[in-house]
Design a protein around this nucleic acid. Structure first.
Lengths: 212, 212
DNA sequence: TTGCCCATGTAATTTGTTACATGATTTA
DNA sequence: TAAATCATGTAACAAATTACATGGGCAA
């Protein structure tokens, strides 16, 4: 354990702040609980780290004095480690959250769009199938967002998480509209491609144009 | 160099496929050109890898026989390495693109939303400022998308990239609407918080409720 | 009694970034 | 002629995942 292993208080990775953020809401939590919460809420607008990484970040946050853990004593049958944010942690998190320069543009990794972009490699029907499957999945995600909204009751403490979920709900509705529009664009592109090849065929064969 | 270092043809990381995808369009390109193209187009719906990673992926793709490179000979003053996709590469890419199971849900990492979610740590005006800054940036991004659309002319070969960019354009328009709605929600939440504290203050002081 | 959920952690590996080094060509 | 851009690459590091190991409690 050399000095080079001691983490700097500045510029922690966003994941560390996200985990600390989970702890900034009232109550103490285990790493396992944090993971479940991230899966059911944070992941809609940010992302849910692997459980092993959550444990790693919790250790780092504790080392920095931003979180404190208590191993449940013998009164509880099962040994759990519950974490709570410290005053220093809350201050550091607030400073980070207020730093406008820190918040870069949103990052989107959209596997479906990558495949549409590579559409010249696939059959048109396959592309349409991928879009409809995406719409199906998005509808399921939307239901999950609404489910999460139900859990976040109308308590002042949870007002901001509720706001983030409302944003996510609208975001998923927008994603559905984008998918529908894409489906139309795909159909339109297909018609144009058919036109082109038909014209090319007629020219090659010297056919007369078909009416209508 | 043991056998364990030989990459498997199956399950390459998405980034490798994205780079191979860049090569799947007509023409040979250098790593540097790929990076520029990714920055100006791919990044809107997927993401732009670091230049060093692009070079690394190109080496891997060549090792797998999915890409072939030719060092520009003495006819060109400057030594460049131009890459082209191979038939095997095109087939593998098509197989990957057609694999529906491979395409997971889109991943979004939205720094602004993370901060809204942590709104209890910030001043309301700071939050509103972050949202308006985000709207500003999104408008600039939208302009960049449209700029890219201009470059992708109405040539059949580029029909699918053009489709992806049209999706991105709409996506950014949706992002603007989401930001506006968020701003309104923020204002509404502020009014409700003010109401609450006013009522609490009256109750504490024993004031009569104000009419209206 | 089998299997699932709770719960924590380690180890190996992969993925990806930043910093650095180098040098030619173009543009102001 | 200075600065920006083109162009390629290495090395060090950080971030993050998967696989593995372990074991208690609970329900079908």
């Amino acid at each position: 354990m050399t000095s080079s292993h001691i983490a700097k208080k500045q510029d922690l990775p966003p994941t560390a702040w996200a985990v600390l953020g989970l702890l900034s809401f009232p109550g103490e939590r285990t790493g396992y609980e944090l993971k479940k919460w991230a899966d059911s809420s944070l992941r809609f607008f940010y992302w849910s780290p692997a459980i092993s990484q959550i444990y790693a970040e919790l250790r780092r946050l504790e080392e920095l004095g931003y979180a404190a853990s208590a191993r449940s004593g013998p009164e509880e049958a099962r040994a759990k480690r519950r974490y709570a944010i410290t005053e220093a942690g809350r201050e550091a998190l607030a400073r980070w959250a207020a730093d406008t320069a820190e918040a870069g543009p949103p990052v989107l990794k959209h596997g479906l769009l990558l495949r549409i972009w590579l559409g010249h490699l696939s059959e048109p029907e396959l592309l349409r199938g991928m879009v409809t499957a995406h719409l199906e999945r998005t509808r399921a995600e939307l239901a999950a967002v609404r489910e999460a909204m139900g859990h976040a009751a109308d308590v002042p403490e949870w007002a901001f998480p509720a706001l983030a979920l409302r944003w996510s709900e609208r975001q998923h509705l927008a994603e559905l509209e984008l998918g529908e529009a894409l489906l139309e664009d795909l159909a339109e592109a297909g018609r144009r491609a058919a036109d082109r090849s038909a014209r090319a065929g007629r020219q090659a064969a010297g056919d007369a144009p078909t009416p209508g």
